[in-house]
Amino acid sequence: MNKIKYSIFGRSKLSGDFIFEALVGLFALGVIVLAFLLFRELFIESQLSRNTFGLGFLTTSTWNPVNEVFGALPFIFGTIVSSFLALLIAVPFSLGIAIFLSELAPEKLRTPLSFIIELLAAVPSVIIGLWGIFILAPFIRDYLAPPLSTYLGFLPLFQGPMYGLSMLTGGVILAIMIIPITSSISREVIMTVPTHQREAALALGATGWETTRIAVLPYARSGIFGAVILGFGRAIGETMAVTMVIGNSPRISASLFSPSYTMASVIANEFTEATSKLYISSLIEIGFLLLVISFIINIAARILVWKLLKVEGGGVT
């Protein structure tokens, strides 16, 4: 028997397994190191700003590079309002899309249509911004703003002059950009609803829509909420397209027609021009806040979506 030959082979193979596991484990560790470094770098580099302004950084609305007084409130306001506006527009559409593509559409149309919707997510942000400047902003100025101010002008939201580049335009462009992700995750979540839930409703004589309403949506509720939060996270971090259409003016205004500024935009616009250490540090603190917020949002969303998707995907053969 070739016993000796085998055992010599054996030793080298055993160590091969060990080396390979250690190697890929090291790269897995790399992912964690990357997350750690992201935090550490931005945390350290924003030290100066934190020491200078403290928590007042979050509540001050002055942004004055000349006098070196920096407060992030206008940007936080701009980011939150534009993202909420985006959700307000995108969520009903995304839900409609998800329901149509998973429940009501003819079988043949589902895959191609969802591919087309997801293709929108592949269009680079800068190109959407370019389109936003030259097509969307004029369209909103000429066709959407006038009726809004005529019929809803009594609300502070729709008062004042509209030049095209505005909070409203920023919100609409963000909505367009998050529809692919919220709709596709909602659709995934809806598709995890077990068939027997649907059949139970169908067996009672429910129509397609009634089945969706009574059997599917309640079941998928928390996952859809996760998808919405994920879209919110995407909107908060989105930079280029918003920067190109929101007007970039650090003011807090009740009107959606006035220009605004977001956290991501101020970094994109001013970072290379920032000259003083404090100026740079303040911008990095805004970046750090952005990172922390989007991590929190992502963790929350993942937990909500995971609960549904994991159960289904966890099977081992």
Binding site: L42, G237, I267, S294, N298
Partner: peptide, 28 residues
């Protein structure tokens, strides 16, 4: 546990705002 943690971190990292990635490239 380590594997599940890495998986979770990777998932959360997919939500990193692109401008923040740029900032990291700058400081790093």
């Amino acid at each position: 546990k380590f594997g599940r943690f890495v998986s979770f971190v990777a998932d959360v990292l997919t939500g990193t705002p692109s401008i923040v990635a740029g900032m990291f490239g700058y400081t790093f």
